[in-house]
Design a protein around this nucleic acid. Structure first.
Lengths: 245, 245
DNA sequence: CGTTCGATTGAGGAAGATCAATTAATGTGG
DNA sequence: CCACATTAATTGATCTTCCTCAATCGAACG
């Protein structure tokens, strides 16, 4: 009885999701033949205010999406992985409303918005793909808002790690040991807390053996068991913490 | 010289936006002839888990969108006004992921998802309409997340009122005096704070003359000047409050 | 006119921000 | 390769904001 195998214990349930991203990428590749662009950590692919010429799909790597307000506030509002789209928020206004910046080496595919629109008119499966990507993003943003509003700081950090590990797992990538490509300050900015609070939360998670730090630096995190992270979140809810009705 | 007319002092700038919603509604009405449904405060139009048969567009009234998690947390994650769409988050999974509940009398138009998809394939302007609605929702959700993360409680309440008044103004509705159709508890739940904090924030806003309560109850709020609300938000940022870098 | 529900206001406490000091990585020029 | 400079992370000590608990008040309703 193997117990250390959380992935694909139920192949029938895992299979469709596991196939979804490669299938989507193949469809896009074949029907639109997108221009490919290699990026390294720190490279922006667009900036808030840029005219929306293209939408982007990640073939590999990790991106952060940074929102900025007129009054100078700046915040990481999303993380993007393989198969995710970038730039969807700019469709309404014809201009990008955020910065998109690579935080790891990777490859993005550029889809001319006009060409995509044309193709979507002719090919139902392409339209579906786009609508589903947008829908997924809306649903995810709401979950994120909800975590922000209802979870205490420690749980938010745990949830952040769980989400990251989960995203990698769904894409068939190594999840046992993940490299956070963000500083504590960036993580805190994303989660709405200070870098000190992030650091303390991580220390506590490590002390509780929910995560472990690896030899090389504290930027690499070992997650022996994703379910344990979820358990940690749940525990911070149950013990007398109805937190906002 | 009439001075109490904040709208359309610059007709060229205001006109396109002001026309956008009626134009969109007319297009939908003519091309899809949607079934219309009257609702009253408290009526749900769908529940999380329901199969996605329709998308909905508000012709009038106000809706709240409520998200619930497996562990029982429940939160208002969005407010919807005339011209807004409901149910977009359910496209990806084929099921609604939230409850949508009327908080005022109004009328929603039901669009069979399949029919909408067909029509969008044939009519570019309809496809654009749908994509723009989804894009706008993504952009707005990010702004909301950002407010949550970067603004202190008082400013979040001010921003909430500003957004509500702004939404009404954009739709050509009375904005001088608005009726909040949510309890303090609901507002607090939406903004990630307790009802007491909402109450205190409102009292402070009234004391600073940024808002005023009307004779009948404290559920009606008079907003003499929307810009003053924005000013209040800004002030809570500048005086030694970098708040998260 | 009492009952109920929502709103307000105050007092005390806890989570998390801020300030500050230390330690660990990373990078740079010699 | 090492000394040094720089940046990131950790940890502790306060202080602030906001939550919790509780009492009071007002409005709506039967």
């Amino acid at each position: 009885m193997t117990h250390a195998e959380p992935i694909a214990t139920n192949p029938r349930a895992a299979a469709p999701a596991a196939r979804a991203i490669p299938d989507a990428l193949r469809l896009l590749s074949e029907t639109l033949e997108p221009e490919r662009r290699l990026v390294r950590a720190g490279d922006p692919i667009y900036r808030a205010g840029d005219r929306l010429g293209c939408l982007y799909v990640l073939n590999s790597g990790v991106f952060k999406v940074v929102n900025l307000t007129a009054d100078g506030r700046e915040q990481v509002v999303a993380l993007k992985f393989k198969g995710d789209w970038l730039g969807l928020d700019g469709i309404a206004g014809g201009r990008h409303t955020c910065d998109a910046v690579a935080i790891d080496t990777g490859e993005v595919w550029m889809l001319r918005y006009g060409a995509l629109l044309d193709a979507a008119q002719r090919r139902p499966e392409l339209l579906q793909l786009l609508l589903q990507a947008m829908s997924r993003e809306i649903a995810h943003d709401r979950d994120a808002l909800m975590s922000m509003c209802t979870l205490p700081a420690d749980a938010r950090v745990a949830e952040f790690l769980r989400y990251w590990a989960d995203a990698l797992e769904q894409r068939g990538l190594r999840t046992e040991q993940i490299t956070l490509r963000m500083t504590r300050a960036e993580i805190g900015n994303y989660l709405g807390m200070t870098l000190e609070t992030v650091s303390r939360a991580l220390s506590r998670l490590a002390r509780d053996n929910v995560i472990a730090f690896c030899e090389r630096g504290r930027r690499e995190v070992r997650i022996p068991n994703i379910a344990a992270l979820h358990g940690f979140v749940q525990r911070s809810l149950t013990p007398a913490s109805p937190m906002l009705q």
